[in-house]
């Protein structure tokens, strides 16, 4: 009995084991990795992608994908810088609602609907910013600041969003329905779940989380740039997948996504500490993503 529970624990936490292994390897090669300040940095670096990836988790669990989160983050940050932070969140959620409407009522494949939004939101960011970066106000800047030297707010926000995501996924009807829709949309429909309405909320949540991530990013930098968060959607998807979620839907957990985002951040940080040239870093990160997905698919057999 105990060997089975250990095996099950290990198989459910493959990503966590990978993260620990990665950390040990890097720490051995470069002990400075374990420096408290550096570890905090890793956390801060992970925060933006993690928050975005939590939103992505909802979509992926429900069997969809959201390519627009990077653009939405940039748009929300820009709107936040030009007006006020909360308005950025509203804009992000609205973009998500549009995604949801296109997917559920327009019956577009999520890939296409959110690809369109990727372009539209990025374009609007350029329009509003007139191609210039804009300084963030005190409220947004605060989001990226340190409460005390050893307590960066982004890290706390990441943990808060982690908690919220876990709650939504496991303790709410919306969360339970995500698993049902992603696992078998037809069965969900025949069980009386209003699949279309649920999808609206799911994509809206993803947009909202992306906007929050965008504000945290702008807060850290002190400004919102028109080209901020380009390509972040791919990191977010990678984090979700490394965390063990299935792109065919129905599977995924908040813990997994958190670990996935940390894997990416630890890897980037470690490669920097080991002075791997940035061009090669891309190659290594890509290889690690493939490896993670490969291990996951192996253990599922």
């Amino acid at each position: 009995m105990s060997t089975i529970s250990i095996r099950r624990y290990a198989s459910e936490n493959g990503a966590l084991a990978g993260l620990l292994l990665l950390a040990v390897v890097i720490a051995v090669m470069q002990p400075a990795f374990l420096n408290a300040q550096n570890l905090l940095n890793v956390g801060v670096q992970a925060a933006v992608i993690a928050i975005m990836a939590f939103g992505m988790t909802f979509v992926v669990v429900a069997g969809g994908i959201d390519l627009s989160v990077g653009s939405i983050a940039a748009l929300a940050a820009m709107v936040g810088a030009l007006t006020a932070g909360p308005l950025g969140l509203v804009v992000g959620a609205l973009c998500g609602l549009v995604n949801g409407a296109l997917v559920s009522y327009g019956k577009l494949p999520p890939f296409i609907a959110t690809l369109a939004m990727l372009s539209v939101a990025r374009g609007l960011t350029l329009v509003f910013s007139e191609g210039q970066p804009h300084e963030t106000d005190a409220v947004v800047t605060f989001l990226g600041s340190n409460l005390t030297p050893s307590l960066p707010l982004p890290l706390l926000l990441m943990l808060a969003f982690f908690g919220i995501t876990g709650l939504i996924l496991t303790r709410t009807n919306l969360g339970r329905r995500m698993y049902a829709i992603g696992g078998n949309e037809e069965a969900a429909k025949l069980s009386g779940i209003d699949v279309r309405k649920q999808k609206l909320w799911i994509y809206a949540l993803s947009g909202l989380f992306a906007a929050a991530a965008g504000l945290v990013l702008a807060g850290r930098l002190g400004s919102a740039g028109p080209q901020a968060a380009v390509g972040y959607e791919l990191d977010a998807i990678a984090a979700v997948v490394i965390g063990g979620a299935s792109l065919s839907g129905g599977v995924g957990r908040a813990t997994g996504t958190l670990v996935g985002a940390l894997v990416l951040a630890v890897l980037r940080n470690g490669l920097n500490l080991l002075q791997v040239p940035p061009f090669w870093q891309q190659v290594v990160i890509g290889a690690v993503i493939a490896l993670a997905a490969l291990l996951d698919s192996l253990r599922r057999r």
Binding site: Y179, A180, G183, N184, E186, A187, S191, I193, G250, V251
Partner: peptide
Amino acid sequence: PEDRKGQGLVLTATVGQNLELVTL
């Protein structure tokens, strides 16, 4: 429904999660 796996069940979920599908 007639097609148990295609229309009746969420195969990725547990017995309990399937049982509570209608009465969430």
